[in-house]
Design a protein around this nucleic acid. Structure first.
Length: 812
RNA sequence: GGGGGCGUAGCCCAAUCGGCAGAGGCAGCGGACUUAAAAUCCGUACAGUGUGGGUUCGAGUCCCACCGCCCCUACCA
């Protein structure tokens, strides 16, 4: 027996500690670079270093690890890295509240989590680790920013942000709390304020991002992204406003143009102030002020009664010259379309409601079926022929869309247009703990990019965190004051930092060569490993992270960095692990499960297996503190198979071989399809069986069977499998063995149980050879004493035979 | 309002192309071991599949309508 094997029986914590050390010493999980093997890049979403690994991390990572281990045993060279998404607000809050520097706070959390990750027993290659808050990482965020700028994909624009008037600072979205939108720190209601911010032109790629033909992702994610991008086609139409000029609207319903009886602009629309008449100006200003304080959520609450204010101005309907009143109303959003709409109450629910409230005429221009000219009682959005539409009367509205657009086009008053719900990605954050945006503002040369060779722009360490939360970079003279790269004159640095989604948009590339300093990643490594073959993570990232990383990859392709279009070929979304009360785990509910308690008590393998056993991985489910006992029992029983293998029986091993083959097949197919729960059930079933037969079969057959079982167990319970492998005197390591195969011919049973039904009701079960013919099966069934009474004296109208399964007689 | 998911035993979950409702686990019950208990081992009971229709020889599975729970999204012109 090997000296590395436990000397005194079963003790998971001892077993696990010892193998963890051995694995580290021997570099077992260093990435295999053997070019003869097919590559497999497995990736699990990187964690935020909040301090400890919680059970949600275990739930996300250990099945992912099991799958990666399976691929490894299946002959692939597998790359399975891990890292830390280390920039972000919590670190800065800790600094403000407790006076700990974000760097210190983050790095000590990482230190702690590294240990916990090792304990997990995952095959992470820690040599590939990345920490996004280190200059060697964020330098490349800055580099990408410069590339985006060169390509015209980064630009600066005034954009509304949440602003706390008391603290004099902008707030991140998550710092604005409550339904009445108050500042997290001082409780002051926040307002929207326009600030110059940096954006990435993700909208340039909107159409390409709608194409999912090159990836195998869950339907849900594709649907979510499609809806998020929200492509709609229609027309842009110019409405002349006397004394001001034209205001453009976007509409998907140019066919209803004759029914536009009023006009609405968003409260923030630049025209509002200029077009308001002196009599209305006061009321308008008050309304705009009120709207600016309202949250996006409130403003977009559909159940809210629509409000608006008349500006006193009118717009001219280009079709009929009608002067229609212009309202400012918050149900029109500045960020969508042109921020102004033509309102057609007869054919738009929202406009209908508004018109009713403000007594605006409602004119039907698309005739509903059976319509005879009466006033509509609700908006009609369906199809029909155009009416009250001048020369277009009688045209089916579907054709009318194009006809009206063409007509406008000839007169220079409109054109076909496509609009997206997707906005450009606003990356500026008025925060300290993020990647500095590499821009310098020169009084003479404006915004100037920091030259590539001057990267990285380092975050100054000696930042001061004031309780006001204002970004320390703004107050840091040494950081802010610099010289212009163009003229050398005094200039100021950009003090905003980047959105942390920037970090996670390309991290899968950095893993390949975390310390490479000639580019974001080593092209040779990229050649060898990219793209990611299997990504796993939570569904909550469906629209943000997963869209950003697709966008990034497409830009990288256009920069010539990669030669493919999509970052991750396959994606699997795991569910959410809930508390024992089936509610989301949270400190306030007091239902948080600490993995450490269970690791200490039952071992990592038990926790791993339990989380995989709880149910389908994509479904999530509630934690059951007692359920883990069952898993611990299973692992102990499995261990006992190897710990005392005295088999000297003489029974025919055929049945054992058959069951082994079936187990291997089941586990293999389940692992391919991420069905960890049923794979484990098969392993349990097999364990129960092996315990029952172990002293009935010969030693050679038994050891063979046991080896196969250990191999199949290895991806799930890496420590136990390693220990059992060693107990059997097998060479280190079980994780470097090949995945067992099976003999399909062994699997088929020789004897089957046929069920016999009469009129669909079960009447008997009969034993028959597996290859029994229909005729013989029928005769056997008819011969049954239990069946005969039900068919005797009746006419058998039909006999259904399902080979190997059943015979069903349909009788009168 | 839109999109998606889930309802099977007291509980978590299985059930291949529509073909015996039960693989696995928890809890329960009975027994063995023990002075006793825990642990362990052996053995067991328990549902007709959320509701109502339909298709079919046959429905947990397919179709229609509804009920309940969960997730995402939402005035997108």
């Amino acid at each position: 027996m090997s000296e590395t094997v436990a000397k005194s029986g079963y003790d998971p914590s001892y077993i696990e500690r010892r193998w963890q050390e051995r694995w580290m010493e021997t570099g077992l999980y260093k990435t295999d670079e053997d070019p003869d093997k097919p590559k497999h890049y497995a990736l699990t979403m990187l964690p935020y270093p909040s301090g400890d690994l919680h059970v949600g991390h275990w739930y996300a990572m250990t099945p992912s690890d099991t799958r990666a281990r399976f691929m490894r045993m299946n002959g692939h060279r597998v790359f399975f890295p891990i890292g830390f998404d280390a920039f972000g607000l919590p670190a800065e809050n800790a600094a403000i509240k407790r006076g700990i520097h974000p760097y210190k706070w983050t790095m000590s959390n990482i230190e702690n989590m590294r240990g916990e990750l090792r304990q997990m027993g995952a095959m992470f290659d820690f040599d590939a680790e990345i920490v996004t808050c280190l200059p060697e990482y964020y330098r490349w965020n800055q580099w990408f920013f410069l590339k985006f700028l060169e390509k015209g994909l980064a630009y600066r624009k005034e954009a509304p942000v949440d602003w706390c008037p008391k603290d004099n600072t902008t707030l991140a979205r998550e710092q604005v709390i409550g339904p009445d939108r108050r500042c997290e720190r001082c409780g002051t209601p926040v307002v929207k304020k326009n600030l110059a911010q940096w954006l990435f032109k993700i909208t340039d790629y909107a159409d390409e991002l709608l194409d999912f033909s090159k990836i195998d992702w869950p339907e849900r994610v594709e649907t979510a992204q499609t809806n998020w991008i929200g492509r709609s086609t229609g027309a842009e139409i110019a409405f002349e406003v006397p004394g001001y000029g034209p205001i453009e609207v976007f509409t998907t319903r140019p066919d209803t143009l004759f029914g536009a009886t009023f006009f609405v602009v968003a409260p923030e629309h630049p025209a509002v102030e200029k077009i308001s008449t002196p009599e209305q100006a006061g009321e308008v200003r008050a309304y705009v002020e009120k709207a600016s304080r309202m949250s996006e959520i409130d403003r977009t609450d559909v159940t809210r009664v629509k409000t608006g204010v008349f500006t006193g101005a009118f717009a001219t309907n280009p079709t009929n010259g009608e002067e229609i009143p212009i309202y400012a109303a918050d149900y029109v959003l500045l960020g969508y379309g042109t921020g102004a709409i033509m309102a057609v109450p007869a054919h738009d629910e929202r406009d209908f409601e508004f018109a009713k409230k403000y007594g605006i005429p409602i004119r039907t221009v698309i005739a509903p079926p059976e319509w005879n000219g009466e006033q509509l009682t609700e908006a009609y959005a369906g199809e029909g022929r155009m009416v009250n539409s001048g020369a277009f009367d009688g045209t089916p509205n579907v054709e009318g869309k194009k006809a009206v657009t063409d007509w406008l086009g000839e007169r220079g008053q409109g054109r076909p247009a496509v609009t997206y719900r997707l906005r450009d990605w606003l990356i500026s954050r008025q925060r300290y703990w993020g990647t500095p945006i590499p821009i310098i503002y020169c009084p003479d040369h404006g915004p100037v990019p920091v030259p590539e060779e001057d990267l990285p722009v380092l975050l100054p360490e000696d930042a001061e965190f004031t309780p006001t939360g204002e970004s320390p970079l703004k107050l840091h003279e040494g950081f802010r004051n610099t010289t212009c790269p163009v003229c050398g004159g005094p200039a100021e640095r950009e003090t905003d930092t980047m959105d942390t989604f920037m970090d996670s948009s390309w991290y899968q590339y950095r893993y390949l060569s975390p310390h490479y300093d000639e580019g974001p990643f080593d092209p040779a490594e990229g050649e060898s490993w990219l793209p990611v073959d299997q990504y796993t993570g939570g569904i909550e990232h469906a629209t943000m992270h997963l869209l950003y990383t697709r966008f990034f990859t497409k830009v990288m392709r256009d920069l010539g960095l990669v030669d493919f279009d999509e970052p991750m070929t396959r994606l699997f979304n795991q569910g959410i692990i809930l508390g024992e009360d089936a509610e989301k785990m949270s400190k306030s509910r007091g239902n948080v499960v600490n993995p450490r308690d269970f690791v200490n008590r039952y071992g990592s393998d038990a926790l791993r297996c339990f989380l995989m056993f709880i149910g389908p991985w994509n479904q999530g489910g509630p934690w059951d503190g007692r359920g883990i006992e069952g898993i611990a029992r299973f692992l102990r029983r499995a261990y006992s198979l190897a710990a005392s293998s005295e088999s000297s029986g003489t029974a025919d091993p055929k049945e054992m071989d058959r069951r082994t083959a079936r187990m291997v097949k089941k586990v293999t197919e389940d692992l391919e399809a991420f069905r960890f729960n049923t794979a484990l059930a098969a392993l349990m079933e097999h364990t129960n069986y092996l315990l029952a037969v172990r002293d009935r079969v010969g030693e050679a057959e038994w050891e063979d069977t046991l080896r196969t079982f250990i191999l199949a167990l290895a991806p799930f319970a890496p420590y136990h499998a390693e220990e059992m492998w060693a107990l059997m005197g097998q060479p280190y390591s079980v994780h470097e063995q090949g995945w067992p195969g099976w003999d399909e011919s062994l699997i088929a049973e020789e004897e089957i149980t046929l069920i016999v039904q009469v009129n669909g009701k079960l009447r008997d079960r009969i034993e028959a050879p597996a290859d029994v013919s229909e005729e013989i099966a029928r005769d056997l069934a008819l011969a049954s004493a239990k069946v005969r009474p039900h068919v005797e004296g009746r006419e058998i109208r039909k006999a259904i035979y399902v080979p190997g399964r059943l015979v069903n007689f349909v009788v009168s």
